[in-house]
């Protein structure tokens, strides 16, 4: 450890230590999860997107028939809607974990007061929390992709490509959720957040292509973050590769970087008063 630290340039060493401390924050969450025995509840969370898939994908799918993809092919409704379910459950999971938990820990448990008394900085806390949110979200996504492959809704290669895309969605919304948490005043604000999440869930090209909406509504939808996540994941699972994917990718990466920066800064402001 010591020799490595000496050999590395100063800046890299700082990043290394920062990451280690972030991982310490992640580790705390994982330990807590083991203790609270909420694994069972966590496991039951796998069922939720599966139920949605069965109900909407197949139940409603039988009524809808086939829908067109951006490249002009048409696919059964379940194949169209499954990647969108996946992307939005990645979003929901990431927001629940980051916003709710972060808020509870900051406001009620005053947990970070104790953590920040150690050499851990606010940004490191933010990154640590985000890694945890993504680990959890990633497990859900992986399970969902396995189910999709088993049901013949995508190929193995499609699933392998989609997995990093879902992680990016988790990360991006985790960052956004964390930033939102620093603005939350009370639990009532979560009602508004839930409504906003729900609106994104319905209007991001999830259940029907965005072209089915009026032009103005369509523009609005194309500005929202979940739309880009849905398009990215759907492109991977259906094998529809177009240049526009780079734009979706850039959007999500930018969202992650910007929100994380601001979240770290705001947490610093809130905690280190």
């Amino acid at each position: 450890m010591v020799t490595t630290a000496l050999a590395l340039p100063r800046a890299a060493r700082r990043i290394d230590e920062g990451l280690r401390r972030s991982l310490a924050v992640t580790g705390r969450n994982a330990t807590l999860a083991r203790h609270l025995g909420y694994w069972w509840l966590l496991a039951s969370g796998f069922f939720e997107p599966l139920l949605y898939l069965l109900s909407i994908g197949f139940g409603v799918g039988a009524l809808v028939g086939e829908l067109p993809l951006p490249d002009g092919r048409t696919v059964p409704y379940a194949e169209f809607v499954a990647p969108a379910m996946l992307a939005s459950s990645a979003m929901n999971g990431a927001i629940a974990e980051s916003t709710m938990n972060l808020f509870a820990k900051m406001k009620h448990m005053r947990l970070y007061d104790a953590v920040l008394a150690t050499p851990v900085t606010p940004v490191e806390v933010a990154v640590g929390e985000l890694i945890w949110a993504t680990v959890r979200g990633g497990m859900y996504c992986a399970a969902f992709l396995v189910i999709m492959v088993a049901m013949g809704l995508t190929t193995v290669w499609g699933a392998l490509l989609a997995f990093p895309a879902t992680l990016l969605v988790c990360f991006a919304f985790g960052g956004a959720g964390m930033l939102l948490a620093t603005f939350m005043k009370g639990w009532q604000d979560f009602d508004y957040l839930m409504a906003a999440q729900f609106a994104l869930f319905l209007f991001s090209g999830t259940f029907a292509p965005v072209d089915s909406f009026p032009t103005v509504a369509r523009w609005l939808m194309e500005l929202t973050p979940l739309y880009h996540g849905v398009e990215l994941v759907r492109a991977a699972t259906t094998g529809t590769f177009q240049w526009v994917l780079l734009w979706h990718l850039a959007y999500l990466v930018a969202l992650l970087v910007v929100t994380l920066r601001f979240a770290g800064r705001r947490m610093g402001g809130l905690l280190l008063k």
């Binding site: 409603v60 009524l63 809808v64 028939g65 729900f198 319905l202 259940f207 029907a208 089915s212």
Partner: peptide
């Protein structure tokens, strides 16, 4: 009021009208 009222309206718009178009 916000949630118990807005959520169904969003559902009507998102599912009823847009998906409904295809159905």
């Amino acid at each position: 009021v916000f949630t118990s009222f807005l959520v169904p309206v969003l559902f009507l718009l998102g599912m009823g009208i847009s998906v409904g178009g295809y159905v």
